[in-house]
Every structure is written in structure tokens, then in C-alpha cells.
Amino acid sequence: MKRRFLTLVVFSLIISVFLAACSKDDSMDHGDMDHNSNKKQPVTSHEGMNHGDMTSTPQKDNTKVEFSFNEKPESGKQIPLNIQVNNKNGQPIKDFEVEHEKLMHLIVVSKDLSYFDHIHPEYKGSGLFTINSNFPSGGEYKLFADFVPKGAEKMVKTYDVTVAGNKVRTTPLTEEKELTKVVDGKEVTLKFDHLMTEMDLTMTFTIKDANTKQPIINLQPYLGAVGHVVAISGDTETYLHVHPIDEKATGPDAKFMTSFPEGGLYKIWGQFQQNGKVITVPFTINVPK
């Protein structure tokens, strides 16, 4: 009897271990992990005209993106950058949606966020985008490739690159208490209706003539809208590309709706156009945690 009892106990333990192993969640596909992507899911392109679709829920990502330079990137040299967009099986994705007049928006920032550039690689076909890089100094940079495969969700892929050449002194990111700046003769003020994490908010840029203080009411469309806003967290892990609520506005106010998924420091760049010239206005804010 004792031997039979022990046999039954051992058999029960084997069955329990087997059932526990089978019950584990096997939904994660490590083959889909893209090590060039953000560690945190980026919140991207909050379209002002469709607030109901605003979400930070991760979307199914079927893309693989490879960033490569024709030679080692060096400051002051225009070296071709290649961005190859494939599906998860390694086949080129050939068709992309036009978003705000471009197939891809490429945001380039230094790791301390003191440098910012918003450029648009040329599409060569078969998933290949190219552009000549032009880094102003040596050091660490982060690239954000923002695109929409045809019939799919928006994707943002990131890439860290170290650029050779003379480095400039890094600038620690600090909150700006006064959110009014003068850039190229324009006085730009940024205001929020409220500033909290994980809550929809409206940010308003008000643009005046810096000399006369008269409101500017003849802003021109920039990439099909009154303006564009990019916000990146201080650790460069969270990225937001925000489009205006009223794309056809002409000033002096340009309103944008978004939400910040986490608290902390963010650098915000607003871009606007008047008389054929684009201005970029940076602000650093602290979102309460």
C-alpha cells in the first residue's frame, strides 16, 4: 500500500507541473522584438481632428527597420543615411501612406536635446528611404523615423548613433518657468489648459510680432497644417508628434491636443511658417508626476 501511495503522489506532482507549464502565457513572440525601438511604447502623432482615436496602447508591429550609414558618421560631413523598412519576414514594405505631405518624418535630436532637426528622407522604392546626414558636432544622437505603412498603424522606430568629431558641452535639461520666447522677430507664448499625466490637454501657441506686439494672423501651412509639435522626454524614451486641432488656422493661436504618458521633463518644439520661412521654437516643461 505504501509503495502504491507514493506512486500516486509522484504521478500527481508530475501532472501538476505539466498543467502549470501549459497554463503559462505564450503570447509573447520574441522574434518580433525590434531592438532599435523605444524601450517604452512611444505615444505618437496625436491627430487633433480625431481625438477619439488618441491612445498609447501598443499596436501590432509587423515592421523591421534597419538604419545604416555609407561610412562612419562624422560632424560637418554629409554622409548618406539609409533607412530600410521591411516586414517581420524580412521582405520590403513597398507602399506607405502620405502623412502631412510626406512619406516619412525623421526627427534627429542630440541626447541632451539641445539639438533638433525635422527632415524628410527621400523614398527610393522597395522600402528604402535615404537622406544625407548633417550632424553639427560629435557626440550621441537619437533618430526617430515616423511613418505609416499602407493599411497599417503609424510606426515610430528609433536608432542611437555616436557621431565622430569635436564634441560640444552638453546642456542639462531644466524646466523653463517663463514660456515666452522671441525667435526670428516673433514672440511665441506657450500655455496649457492644465498639465497632468495621462489626461488629454490642450497646448496653445500664441504668436505675435516681437516689435509691435500685434497678433500674427497670416501663418502659412507648414506640411499641410498651421504647425507641428514634437515633444520628447528628458530620457529620450517617450516621443510625441502632435498635429493641430484646427489645421487650417492662420494664427495668432495654434492649438494642439495631446497627453503625456508619464511625468517629468519634456522638451517641446513648435514649428510654424510665415512668409515662406519656418521657425522652430523650443520650450522645456515639467509634467507633474
Rank of each mutant, 00 (worst) to 15 (best):
K88W: 02
I131W: 01
V10W: 09
T162M: 11
S233C: 12
Q41H: 13
A249I: 04
G165I: 13
I107N: 03
Q274R: 04
F116A: 02
I216L: 11
E47W: 10
A231R: 03
T130L: 05
V287M: 09
L19V: 07
T44P: 02
S56R: 11
L219P: 00
C22R: 15
E247A: 15
G264P: 08
V287F: 04
E262H: 03
T158A: 14
E140M: 09
V226I: 15
D25M: 08
E262F: 03
T258M: 12
N87A: 00
N166I: 08
F11Y: 14
M196V: 05
V230K: 00
L179W: 05
D160H: 06
D246I: 12
C22G: 10
T206S: 11
S45L: 06
I107W: 00
W269M: 10
F67G: 05
H120F: 07
T212L: 05
H243D: 12
S75W: 00
D95G: 00
K248V: 05
E187W: 00
F144G: 07
K39W: 10
N70R: 12
K2N: 07
V148L: 15
K167T: 14
Q214A: 11
M257F: 08
D34F: 00
V226Q: 08
L173M: 14
E140D: 13
Y159V: 01
H105N: 01
H118I: 05
V148H: 11
Y266N: 05
S133C: 06
V163H: 00
A164F: 08
G48S: 04
D117N: 13
Y115V: 10
K157A: 06
M199D: 01
K255S: 07
I119W: 00
T202S: 01
D209P: 02
P42V: 11
F129I: 06
K88Y: 08
A254N: 03
N166T: 14
K24M: 14
N82R: 09
G270L: 00
V278I: 02
T258D: 00
E66T: 13
N82L: 03
M28W: 12
T7S: 12
A210S: 15
F96Y: 04
D146G: 04
A145F: 02
Y239S: 10
A152Q: 14
D146C: 06
I107A: 01
L81G: 00
P261R: 10
H243E: 15
N134G: 15
K24T: 12
L128S: 10
H243T: 14
N87D: 14
K213S: 10
M196C: 05
L19W: 07
G270I: 07
A231V: 09
I131F: 04
G48I: 04
L173K: 12
G251T: 09
L240M: 14
H46T: 09
P261F: 03
T180L: 11
E153S: 14
V148N: 06
K39E: 14
R4E: 13
R169A: 15
T206Q: 13
D112M: 13
D112V: 12
S75R: 01
V229G: 01
M104K: 01
S133G: 11
Q271Y: 09
K124F: 08
E66F: 05
E101A: 14
R169K: 10
G139T: 08
D112E: 06
P252M: 10
K154S: 07
I119M: 09
D184A: 15
I83C: 05
